[in-house]
């Protein structure tokens, strides 16, 4: 089966949603799928975090995106991610360096984080991916 690896470096709604959509869709297609959350992307894995903002260039679309999510027309990023996790095919990694400079501990992160890893470990896991994407 193919494999996809995504590096997520933003905590904004308009970045998290497409990243989760691709990672989860890959997982339900039976692909191996992995996401590495680094820099501001790691903020999205903090317990209780709920993305409400889009990137600053696209503020004009923020309300309509939020309405689409609250009406159920578009699933929330967490719903999407949780379904990916249910397949057992989606792995979520947190960047160790970012954990340090943000002062975060493993217990500050949501339960579905599989592992806290450094760059070399992630690269080693991702090296045989068919698709690699950097989302920021």
């Amino acid at each position: 089966m193919p494999k996809i690896s995504l590096i997520v470096a933003s905590e904004k709604l308009d970045k998290l949603l497409p990243a989760a959509t691709l990672a989860t869709t890959a997982a339900i297609m039976g692909w191996e799928s992995e996401m590495f959350f680094t820099f501001w992307g790691l903020l999205a894995l903090k317990r209780g975090y709920e993305p409400k903002e889009v990137s600053s260039d696209y503020k004009v679309y923020e309300d309509s995106l939020r309405r689409a999510i609250s009406s159920g027309a578009i699933p929330s990023w967490l719903e999407v991610l949780e379904q990916g996790k249910k397949t057992g095919k989606l792995k979520i990694y947190a960047c160790s360096t970012t954990m340090d400079f943000l002062g975060l501990k493993v217990e500050d992160l949501v339960d579905y984080v599989d592992e806290v890893v450094g760059a070399a470990s992630f690269l080693s896991k991702a090296k045989d991916s068919d698709i690699t994407l950097f989302i920021s």
């Binding site: 689409a68 159920g72 027309a73 699933p75």
Partner: peptide
């Protein structure tokens, strides 16, 4: 109905499980 991608596929995959 009235759900955008990936809603329909996720709903179907959930039902199939």
């Amino acid at each position: 109905r009235y759900k955008s991608c990936p809603g329909p596929l996720l709903a179907l995959a959930e039902a199939v499980m």
